[in-house]
Amino acid sequence: MKVLLIDIDDSRANKIDSILASAGIELINFNNQHADIYHIVGEMHPEIILVDTNSSNRDTLEHLAQLNKEYPRTVIKLGNNRSESINRLAADAGISIYAIDNIPPRLLQSLIDITLSFFHSIDRLRAEVLALKPEIDARQILNSAKKFIVDTYGLTDEQATDLLNKNANRQGRSITDVARQLMETGAFV
């Protein structure tokens, strides 16, 4: 079975590729804005197309589906059922799915599920990294403030920490705030 990916970046595509290849699905990745989609679809006859929801090539796919009923077209329903996962695929992963008529709904559903869970795990990782960022930033600013105090006033690391703590207490602010201010203005107040 052939699946064509359009405008889905390589790093994402490569990862789904290894999963799907083990199921015997041939993935063709296609990522060139100016390429001729008519030619590609005509030559390859993909049974399923996964395309970036915002790809400008989607309007061309709509046209292809009208020109030839045997080309893949937008999947709105799986069998007779409205499928929530199709909307989630677009909203969460930014991917829209096109398929030819005789692909069994169950197969499409699995493909959507695999793709979704893959992108979900990537998104979760990304979210976790993002959540860490403020903490990392705070440590960095504290370290450079300490280094600044040590270098400028010849104090020890411990004394520098103490100095920052005292200023923070006196001003009723967090030590990170005081450190940031020190780095931005060169003064404690």
Binding site: N54, S55, R58, D59, A90
Partner: peptide, 13 residues
Amino acid sequence: QANWKVLLDRVID
């Protein structure tokens, strides 16, 4: 919007 198709889909949903 990036294309006419997604524009229509977003009005529908």
